[in-house]
Amino acid sequence: MNRIEQLFKNKGKNILNIYFTGGYPNLNDTETIILELEKAGADLIEIGMPYSDPLADGPTIQESGTAALKNGMTLDLLFQQVAVVRKQSNIPLIMMGYFNQMMQYGDMAFLEKCAEYGIDGLILPDMPLYVYEEKYKATFEKLNIGISFLITPQTSNERIKKIDELSKGFIYMVSSSAITGAKKGISEAQLDYFNRINGLQLQNPRLIGFGISDHETFSTACQYANGAIIGSAFIRALKASNNITQTIHNFIEMVKGKVTV
């Protein structure tokens, strides 16, 4: 059982997963951001590997990635920063990026580095299921690295069952078929979708992502899943920040509001 599975076992509800882009706003903010997020009460942290062409991300995250690359971020540096954090914290860490980044690093070397530096799970939105199943599943399992595949309102029940079978840790439930950060609030159609998924009796817990930005959307998401993922709203807060530590604490407080933890 890795740290992600442990988290869902110990605390099945109201899980708050915060996404940030490695190397943003400043090249060496990774350590501060992770440690302060943990102190402020985030349960799970998703580290974005900045990418030149992030197809599944919206403009806010793309912009942060472009800035991080301009700051000089590389995968090697990100791994080093994670290693430093790992000595001080036991919070579950996920890396999110694109399959090409893993391929160019050397796919197996990348997975070994993840395991070595204490990354507990990966999100690679453009890696096809069959590629994972045929080529990487055995290695992920051997190295005890989780993987979260995405589902959307358009994903068929049959495919969701396959995704459930292959995911390890949690399923990333895209709240609507919209790119991250594009939508505000949660609609009736989305609630129908959440209910449909809950009816499928999946083995993996679910976190709802895309469009979660504040206390209202977070607490609604928590009623229909095990928790939620916030990305673009947090990046926007960092962008506007003069004091990262203070911003992080204010942001988490704003999101959690009266949700019991």
């Binding site: 062409d53 590389t74 160019q104």
Partner: peptide, 21 residues
């Protein structure tokens, strides 16, 4: 170029060693 993924296809593309296009 070298082998990698661009616009949903595995092909040859111009990229850095970190896979940035």
């Amino acid at each position: 170029g070298s082998r990698g993924i661009i616009h949903g296809s595995r092909t040859l593309l111009m990229q850095t060693k970190d896979g940035q296009i």
